[in-house]
């Protein structure tokens, strides 16, 4: 009889411990994420303007969103940024990680690589804003010193978005490289030795061993950087404020503009909900497509 009760009591105590450990992050999740999200969702069905009491307007905001050409433009501009940002940043990071793995295990070099990432986004944006200034910027002084026409960079419709993408690649590539570098450490060295004995060259080893075994880490890196990339805001808020005209008016800036410039909180949250749905879909597809939960090492 007593032998029955003993494991149950232990199990109950174990569960209690488990909840105790989960509680801090669970409460954090509820307070800082779940509740605001639900309130945001509710807000998207109102016409709240911050000061007057909110009025329920049904799905009017969503109907408006479907016909909003500016929103479609914002999505296009955001997608353009992601396409400029992610492939180059990931390739660069992968290259840097493999180099580090091969040639240097020095923590100093690793430290230098993450340095741009350690700087606050605002500082990075401000530094580049000054360096890239169309008239007084340091970079333009160099360009003119070499005998070329000075460039408007952030001041031109065509150059603004590539410039912002370049700034963020500079900031994030090192950090992404460190993540991939960590992933490289999990690949057993015997595999490379075995491949070498079989006569595989560096390229074959890279494509046949490194990339497939790195897949879970790469997927993680891609999922997080793509989400982060869709959420581009601070660099734009500091440098171009969505301009020139609407060349860098990404979704996040568009949301900000509606919320805090036009004071249409209801519509702003509607756009946020739409962006949330888009990001969930993209992440889901990525996880499915890359089979992120299984590793080829097993």
């Amino acid at each position: 009889m007593t032998t029955h009760r003993q494991p149950r009591l232990a199990a109950r105590r174990e569960a209690l411990y488990a909840w105790a450990f989960v509680a801090p992050s669970l409460i954090g999740f509820l307070v800082f994420f779940a509740v605001p999200s639900i309130r945001g969702l509710l807000m998207s069905f109102t016409d709240w303007d911050l000061l007057r009491p909110a009025k329920f307007v049904g799905v009017a905001n969503y109907v408006r969103l479907l016909g909003d050409a500016d929103f479609r433009h914002a999505l296009k501009v955001t997608a353009y940024y992601v396409i400029l940002n992610i492939p180059i940043q990931t390739m660069l990071a992968l290259g840097m990680a493999v180099m580090m793995d091969k040639f240097s295990k020095s923590t100093i070099i690793r430290g230098i690589l993450v340095l741009p990432w350690l700087l606050p986004n605002i500082v990075v944006a401000l530094i580049w804003l000054w360096l890239l200034d169309p008239t007084m910027g340091f970079l333009n002084q160099i360009i003119m010193g070499l005998g070329f026409q000075r460039q408007p960079f952030l001041g031109s419709i065509d150059q603004a978005m590539p410039t912002i993408a370049a700034i963020n690649i500079w900031r994030h590539a090192g950090y992404t490289a460190i993540l991939i570098y960590a992933g490289l450490q999990t690949i057993p060295k015997e595999l490379y030795e075995a491949a070498a004995i079989d006569g595989a060259n560096e390229r074959q080893k890279f494509l046949g061993i490194t990339i497939p075994l790195l897949r879970p880490v790469l997927v993680f890196v891609l999922v997080t950087t793509i989400i982060g990339s869709f959420q581009i805001f601070d660099t734009i808020a500091i440098t171009t404020k969505g301009g020139p005209v609407d060349a860098t008016r990404v979704v996040y800036w568009y949301i900000y503009e509606y919320a805090f410039v036009r004071f249409k909180m209801g519509y702003a949250t509607t756009i946020s909900v739409a962006l949330f749905a888009i990001l969930i879909t993209i992440t889901f597809i990525q996880m499915r497509y890359f089979n992120a939960n299984s590793s080829d090492l097993d």
Binding site: D133, P134, T135, L154
Partner: peptide
Amino acid sequence: PALADIKSLGANALFTGGK
């Protein structure tokens, strides 16, 4: 001057800078 130049510094700074 082009709009990009005016936006970066402001007309006042361009003027007092002798541009």
